[in-house]
Amino acid sequence: MSKIELVLRELHRSENSLARDLLTVADRHRVEHEIFHTARDVARWSHDHVRLIAGSAAAHDLHLDPAPSTGSPALLERLTHRTSELLGRRPEPGLLLLADLRRLHRKAAGVSLDWELLSQAAQAMRQRDLFELARRCHPQTLRQMLRQMRWANGQLKIVSPQIIAS
């Protein structure tokens, strides 16, 4: 496998993983309504990126699934929903939310570096189509990564005082 395939695989994996984390965090904090809905809204961006990456990879005889991986099985999903609702009147899940937002921030930063890596690799190896993918998607996706990161940072700012001080 060429190294550029590795880069594509890694990018595909990290976007999928970020989307899955966003959806898991949404489910885990279903009773935090703004977190729940916005995390799901911005997970769509990562799903779009997964599709684009798979489309470009196909031209390199690399099969990557264009459909986002669904992550946790349905049973587990229902369980986290239910747990979130049962714990909705208790303060403890607040600390877990802070940890989740911190992890999302770190993960989104990692994904943006993977895109940077693809952009550099495509230029060095004169892979015009991949360079196009990175050039076309990168500013947009980078902006979306940054927006995902800033969202995690902004929510942390908003919710932490009440969680820590209460």
Binding site: V31, H33, E34, R89, P91, I158, I163, S166
Partner: peptide, 16 residues
């Protein structure tokens, strides 16, 4: 930032 009404209700629900 200031706490908006919907979030105030969430804090009341969660007990803080």
């Amino acid at each position: 930032p200031p706490t908006h009404a919907m979030q105030i209700f969430r804090y009341a629900e969660q007990g803080s």
